[in-house]
């Protein structure tokens, strides 16, 4: 056996190790049996139907979509403005601000979660949905800032200066030139924020008020009772959403830029 085939075998094993469990979940979600495990007794969509009829799960989906959507909106808006300030303007403490914005990625999520919780306790503020949202905004924003900043650095200042010289006011220049050029990055940042929020469990467990469940915390709660095949179906739906959305986004971005002859 030569070196190359050894490496190839190795790679295959690693991929199997990573994706086989996911594949098994997807496969089992179509299993007709009432136990969420092998052997397969037939192919059916009954667990997806169950899922649809399970009020708790539907409610959790609604919460997750709302939370993810709002997180994406707020994170992106603030993140874009922050990136503009960091890339386009000089101000004292800029380096520090920049590091501070990225810090939530570097701090372990549990630490961040506990810190925020203790802080709220200290302020005597009860847990609530807006606070959960705030938590999600804090740890999704660095991704938006990183993506948007990278793109902004690539847009030369001269393009904006040309627009200004032609009579567009700074605001008009922002909306006709900067924003459209930034759009792919903003879009990617928003998708990041959404999927990260949608997937998150650690922070959410700490911050969510009683009685509110997101899809991941719902799955977590269900797992404590039993391993129902419904969970496999739920897992499949989650995979489709969190993998499908970015792929869809990337495809969309490519179509747009190819139309511009990029």
């Amino acid at each position: 056996m030569n070196g190359w085939s050894f490496i190839r075998l190795h790679a295959i094993l690693i991929y199997l190790f990573m994706f086989l469990p996911v594949g098994v979940v997807v496969l089992l979600s179509f299993n007709d049996s009432q136990f969420g495990s092998f052997p397969m007794t037939g192919v059916s969509l009954r667990w997806f139907v169950e899922l649809w009829n399970n009020d708790a799960i539907v409610r959790a989906f609604k919460v997750s979509f709302l939370l993810g959507g709002l997180t994406a909106m707020i994170s992106t808006t603030i993140g874009v403005l922050a990136s503009l300030a960091l890339v386009r303007y000089e101000f004292p403490g800029k380096q520090f601000m920049s590091t501070l914005l990225i810090a939530p990625i570097l701090v372990p999520e549990v630490v961040l979660a506990v810190a925020l919780l203790l802080f709220l306790r200290f302020l005597n503020v009860p847990k609530s949905f807006p606070l959960l949202l705030l938590g999600h905004v804090i740890f999704t924003m660095p991704f938006v800032v990183l993506v948007v900043q990278a793109r902004l650095v690539g847009i030369t200042r001269n393009v904006e200066e040309a627009a200004l010289s032609l009579g567009a006011s700074p605001i008009q220049t922002f909306f006709t030139i900067t924003l459209p050029l930034l759009a792919p990055a903003i879009f990617a940042g928003a998708l990041f924020a959404f999927t990260i929020s949608f997937d998150d469990i650690t922070g959410t467990l700490f911050w969510k008020p009683g009685g509110v469940e997101t899809v991941p915390t719902q799955i977590f709660a269900m797992l404590r009772n039993s391993i129902s095949p419904e969970i496999n179906a739920l897992g499949t739906v989650m995979i489709v959403l969190t993998v499908g959305l970015p792929l869809f986004g990337a495809a969309l971005a490519r179509t747009i830029s190819s139309r511009r002859g990029a």
Binding site: N158, E161, A163, L181, R260
Partner: peptide, 12 residues
């Protein structure tokens, strides 16, 4: 009228 070395056309 401003013209730059790097053209600075609006790419979009």
């Amino acid at each position: 009228g401003l013209v730059f070395q790097n053209y600075a056309l609006f790419p979009h």
